[in-house]
Nucleic acid binder design. Structure first.
Lengths: 362, 362
DNA sequence: TTGAAAGCGATACCAC
DNA sequence: GTGGTATCGCTTTCAA
């Protein structure tokens, strides 16, 4: 069933039917009702391809995933963001177009996306320092919103970001409050903007308590199991090993755990770990207690906001860039365990509500 | 630059230009060369929207992700599949359209995808037993390929699947060869077809050695950290705890590890674990040694094959359904450790090459 | 308030 | 070999 056929059955012109269905004010209410009723009766669905050609809009948003950055698509964070954005697209009648392309073809992909009119705009993932994609997209004339920020960018741009710096600062403070003085950082690759910010939060928290950050226990690598393992292994082998580790991803945390086991240490007794990027929980008296910092739901929200922002921007071309910083929902019900051994104890475990409310200091 | 404009500059008709660019044989070679040269000179890119309307094809493949099945998009397996399929789409000029929809809207989504002409076909993910999507898609008339199988389907259908049954059988055999006699299974939800097949492989391997499978150490749940924890906790609390666990996902494996630690056991000394769905590795003398069964690269291959299959099917409507079973690349260089304690030892660890080659029995 | 008709930018049939 | 033109199904002036 197409527009022309529907119009014929209603004995109306396609023009009027189109207007009625698209909510134009000039149609007679009675007519509109007739049209709407008929449309649902015949299960009329407008042909997307025709709409696209006629309006010149793709009604689609692109997400380009370079394939060498393979960990990225696996990264739960990426999936959550996609899920959030996808919700918005469904609601708004947009399609989400995922392009999985070899690293070196990324630039050409953006150009094609534009010149072939496949998408109306794109979301930029995993920005690096002074990311070359931003000037490229500007040159090409494709509206975009960045998930994350790109320090060093000359021009302003629109972004949605989770406050990674603050999240890591708070996680570090939490460990400090537990009495830890030697805290390792197992970070992602530090040419990624988010990793830089995370490190900044970590070092700030240490500095504030007068603790110098020690490069010997600060690691930066792909967020894989084996890199987590290597980092933790190296850290624990030091003459003055850390009593706690702050880990950037659940995948690297797998490796960290393995290293801890191999070292003959017990998690929660000899050493504490906080994992960013995931929600885990303990069962305690039959109830689930959240234990880690959780950014995942924030990331999903970021996906929603970025999608909404982009759609709105496309409706107002030439508008100013927009920015939105989200606080990660830092939920800590119980750490993986305080270590009182060779660290100066600061007293009891801070209580969860206080932390959740943002008061990192007990 | 569009076709008409390009034709004008060449002083040719749009028809000829179109033919030249699309490789039609009737075009004079000299003309074709002129056209091709001009096209690249002016950086002409045909407008996708127009092609779609004119040809009636969407040049797009849909992937529908129900949102309640949230773990699915997070699942590394899903991401690998997407990456594999995405490669093929890029090469073939297809777009990948991801629809993230609330569970209850899934059926309507498929109908819309068809009637609005957004996609030419779809890939069905995570099939269940006698999955209702298959008859629906047939009714709607949308070509599809299933990633996995749906036992109980009345009609034949096209699918690509990793041999989960054999992978689990071999992993189980591997543990048996190490001397384990009491092996727990931490499986996914067993209304998912793949989980059913995995269990089958596990029980078969046991039966073959005359070991009755014990429901007390067979667990089936969402593949989350806490369900893995619960399963392992329960298993290890039994009067006759397992000496090895076969775990279906890396996420549940996180929980399994936690339970093992809490029980005061040491992985690799007191208990062995094989994790499906991921590649991990140990560092041994500075070299990485793979330790787990790895299906991930197979899954990526499955994505490629499914995409190719679907594209080919769409080119030959009315053709027969196709099937493709992939053996998982079962790589076991080193288990997480044999347990000789209360299990009857069968001798040495089988060597990696033999296992990789498919000889599960030493 | 409604309708006729001209696009949108390709493809593809039919003449020449 | 090449070109004219209808067509895909909708939107959007412009007139009535």
């Amino acid at each position: 069933m197409n527009l022309k056929e529907l119009a014929r059955r209603l004995d109306l012109s396609p023009t009027t039917v189109s207007r009625a269905l698209n909510g134009y004010p000039e149609v007679n209410e009675a007519t509109r009702e007739r049209v709407v009723a008929a449309a649902r009766r015949y299960n009329y669905q407008p042909n997307t391809r025709a709409i696209r050609l006629a309006t010149g809009r793709a009604m689609a948003i692109g997400h380009v995933i370079p394939i060498a950055t393979r960990h990225e698509i696996v990264n739960p964070v990426f999936a959550d963001f996609i899920a959030g954005a996808g919700e918005v697209y469904s609601r708004s009648g947009y399609d989400m177009v995922l392009s999985v392309v070899p690293d070196e073809a990324e630039e050409q992909t953006y150009r094609d996306l534009k010149s072939r009119g496949t998408v109306d705009g794109v979301i930029v993932h995993a920005p690096r320092l002074d990311d070359p994609r931003l000037p490229l997209l500007r040159e090409v004339g494709l509206p975009f919103v960045v998930h994350g920020r790109s320090s060093g960018s000359a021009e302003p741009y629109s972004w949605v970001d989770v406050n990674n710096r603050r999240a890591f600062r708070r996680a570090t403070e939490f460990l400090l409050d537990l009495g830890h003085r030697r805290i390792a950082l197992v970070n992602g690759l530090e040419f990624m903007d988010f990793a830089i910010r995370r490190r900044a939060g970590y070092t700030e928290a240490l500095a504030e308590r007068g603790i110098a950050s020690d490069p010997a226990i600060m690691f930066s690598d792909e967020m894989t199991e084996s890199s987590g393992y290597r980092a933790a292994k190296a850290a624990l082998a030091l003459p003055d090993p850390p009593t706690a580790l702050l880990v950037a991803s659940i995948i690297s945390a797998m490796g960290v755990r393995r290293a801890i086991e191999e070292a003959g240490l017990k998690l929660g007794r000899d050493v504490s770990v906080i994992i960013h990027d995931d929600e885990l929980s303990y069962l305690k008296n039959g109830e689930e207690v959240p234990i880690f910092t959780a950014t995942r739901s924030s990331v999903r929200l970021a996906g929603r906001l970025a999608a909404e922002m982009l759609i709105d921007m496309m409706g107002h071309p030439g508008g100013p860039p927009r920015e939105r910083l989200l606080e990660a929902e830092l939920i800590i019900g119980q750490s993986t365990g305080p270590l009182q051994s060779n660290a100066t104890s600061h007293g009891a475990l801070p209580d969860a509500p206080a932390l959740a409310a943002g008061a990192a200091k007990p």
